[in-house]
Simulated assay, not measured.
Amino acid sequence: MSVLDAAIVHVVLESPYGPLTLVATDGTLSHLYMTDQRHRPPEEDFGVPGDVRDAPFAEAARQLAAYFAGESTRFDLRLDLHGTPFQRRVWAGLTEIPYGTTVSYGELAEHIGAPGASRAVGLANGRNPVGIIVPCHRVVGADGSLTGYGGGLDRKRRLLAFERGVAGAGEQEGLF
């Protein structure tokens, strides 16, 4: 079955960072959208409304609640992520950034075996289909500055401050 024929279902969860729209394709979590997010498609692309008590939303909601409560630092969800092979390498690399820390785009490029590809890493990072779960907010500029974030710089700042507070990580950077 192609993505165009897939059963697409969505739910909206409340979070400390605003409503989160979770989208599942053929029963597997495929997207997480924040309000005012860059690259957010029109709502009619989210499919039919689903029930948060159904799979895969129930487990995603449970893990997100644990994350926002400071009780969990990792996600273990089956994801259906569509992207180029390079984008998928970047997204996999994002999941290896330790909770409460940040790395630069260049450090992430080196980590995934693509030194010198920091711009391409930044573009792939910006196309992450499941922000927060795949923690693209943990990537910063080479000088430590908060650079673009699809969910907005204020939300990125708040997510990083939250993680650092929970982890007691201070200003640790570059820890793969």
Rank of each mutant, 00 (worst) to 15 (best):
E59I: 04
R62G: 02
A65N: 12
Y67L: 04
Y67V: 02
A69P: 05
A69W: 09
A69I: 05
G70H: 08
E71H: 06
E71Q: 12
S72P: 00
S72T: 08
S72H: 06
S72Y: 00
T73R: 12
F75A: 06
L79C: 02
D80M: 10
D80K: 08
G83T: 05
T84L: 04
P85N: 03
F86A: 01
Q87T: 02
R88V: 06
R89M: 09
V90G: 01
W91P: 05
W91A: 03
A92K: 10
G93Y: 02
I97D: 01
P98L: 08
Y99E: 03
V103C: 14
V103Y: 04
S104M: 05
Y105H: 12
Y105D: 07
G106D: 10
G106T: 11
G106Q: 12
G106N: 05
E107T: 09
E107Y: 00
A109M: 09
G113S: 09
A114W: 08
A114V: 07
G116P: 03
R119Q: 15
A120R: 14
V121M: 10
V121D: 04
G122T: 04
L123E: 15
L123H: 11
R127Q: 14
R127V: 08
R127A: 15
N128I: 11
N128Q: 08
N128L: 13
P129G: 03
G131Q: 15
I132A: 08
I132G: 06
I133Q: 10
V134P: 09
H137Q: 13
R138G: 06
R138N: 03
R138E: 01
V139L: 04
V140H: 05
A142N: 14
D143S: 15
L146W: 01
G148C: 07
Y149V: 11
G151T: 04
G151M: 13
G152H: 09
D154Y: 07
K156G: 08
